[in-house]
Design a protein around this nucleic acid. Sequence first.
DNA 1: CCTTGACCTTCCAATCGCTGGAATCACCAT
DNA 2: ATGGTGATTCCAGCGATTGGAAGGTCAAGG
Lengths: 138, 138
Amino acid sequence: MTNPGGAGGVTIGDAAKASGVNAKLIRYYESIGLIPQAGRTASGYRVYSPAEVNVLRFVKRARSLGFGIEQIQTLVGLWRDRSRASAEVKQVAQAHIDALEAKIAELAAMRDSLRELADACHGDDRPDCPILRDLAGP
Amino acid sequence: MTNPGGAGGVTIGDAAKASGVNAKLIRYYESIGLIPQAGRTASGYRVYSPAEVNVLRFVKRARSLGFGIEQIQTLVGLWRDRSRASAEVKQVAQAHIDALEAKIAELAAMRDSLRELADACHGDDRPDCPILRDLAGP
DNA sequence: CCTTGACCTTCCAATCGCTGGAATCACCAT
DNA sequence: ATGGTGATTCCAGCGATTGGAAGGTCAAGG
């Protein structure tokens, strides 16, 4: 059974290789309903069509851009339905950009505070340290 | 029992208010060994000394700077042991700054890619969208 | 004294996005 | 047959919290 399911269908391992999504992760995605339940061979192996592999690639790329699972559900839906307005897609993307900006700002604030403290810390074998003094509070 | 345990000891609720760390979170910190087990009244209530409340404040501030629990363990240890060299503290801080930088860079890369795509998306009611085209891959 | 209500206790579960392991079964080669 | 690889299921854990349920305790008021 080198060609499960017939028309270009592949097993989960090959789908994983082709999409870059771990086989285990594919099953997880199915279990949470991000992707529909895959077809099965007579013996129970999952079968993936090229189109389904494309969905996996889509998911992988979206994850690499930091989209959450729920947002990806939306995006896949918009992708499947070609008649959808691009405004909706842009809105989802913009919301995510805003979230990224917020997170970046948060981390940058931490970094700045810490860098200031670290710069003020002489960092030799003397015990006194502005970092600990700051953490210990006023 | 307005003054559990005698010498300035307070209940978990007051320790929470005084430190800014949620009571539930205090119990969690104790359960994972970040802070030592608190003393107890005869009836089993946890009792916190002013010094212990200070530790909680320390933890809170360190968390707000994004330090992980394990790093905070180290920092608390260094804080308690006043004879420790500041170099050690600075090293922990620097490692965390580096981690923050890496995370920021990762998120900024996502943001930049996404912003480029969003800018190229006209965002009206036409269905064609560069964002989806990118996600769908080459 | 008894109730009310605010507080405390413990334990268990969910979050998010995976990742790992264990036990079992299916396939293909020799 | 036997071995090796890959498939299946389920269960559990990561980090750092947050939530809820079920029950014990305290101080005050009627």
